[in-house]
Design a protein around this nucleic acid. Structure first.
Lengths: 116, 116
DNA sequence: CAGATAGTTTCACATCTGAGAAACTTTAGA
DNA sequence: TCTAAAGTTTCTCAGATGTGAAACTATCTG
């Protein structure tokens, strides 16, 4: 249990990465993790703990994120270097799109009312 | 039935596009369609007609491909302009990766011996 | 019209998926 | 040591997914 499974860089599969990105909750996690490393609790997506844990596993096992254990916390970060090495340009585009997008990927409560 | 459903450019959803790209058969179709417009029969992926039809529908309904009817043939092409407008840089990266990749996305046998 | 061709749709089925409740595992702290 | 905190795992369940056989639709050609 302690050792979380992370696929090696060479084993990253394009289809698996796309599958990991094919869910709104996970896209939102990716967006938040891209900004800075996040503890699971710090991620604002409103799903239950177990569901969040499930999504984090999908992302981790696809090689999109890395989970670092520190005490009782898990810190989630994007594997930018590995992803960029294996899939050049892909996450540059993905993150730019997530940043630009009309936030229809937002799965959190956040009152949602942006547009200043 | 005649009118195939194609989402409008504004309705293209990132998660749906990623879902469409999360299957090896569909990635192979995208790769081949990117080279030039293809009739369904010309696509070399070894799955049955019905399964191929299913995959083409997923791609079409996600807005990744466009299907043009001409006589008894359906011609499948990538919606590059719409995809590029909505998701800048994404397909530049995806197609480059598919081109560069070690062909682990290939779902055909190469000998082209279809199912009878 | 009859037959061939090119796909789609329907059906059935096994597998996968996302969801949360509840129980469990660690680790930190009083 | 007892307890709270932070996640994970197990369980269950409804719904989606990929697959191909078979039936159907539509078009072209003789």
């Amino acid at each position: 249990m302690r050792a979380l499974t992370h696929p090696s860089r060479e084993n990253l599969q394009l289809a698996s990465v796309f599958h990991a990105l094919s869910d709104l909750v996970r896209l939102e996690i990716v967006r938040q993790a891209a900004v800075r490393e996040q503890s699971c609790a710090a991620l604002s997506v409103n799903v239950s703990k177990s569901t969040l844990s499930h999504h984090l596993r999908v992302l981790r096992e696809a090689g999109v994120t890395r989970t670092k254990i520190e005490g009782t916390h898990r810190y989630v970060s994007l594997r930018r270097e590995d992803l960029d090495a294996r899939f050049p340009g892909l996450f540059d585009a993905v993150l730019r799109i997530l940043d630009t997008s009309t936030d229809d990927t937002s799965a959190d409560d956040g009152a949602g009312a942006e547009s200043p």
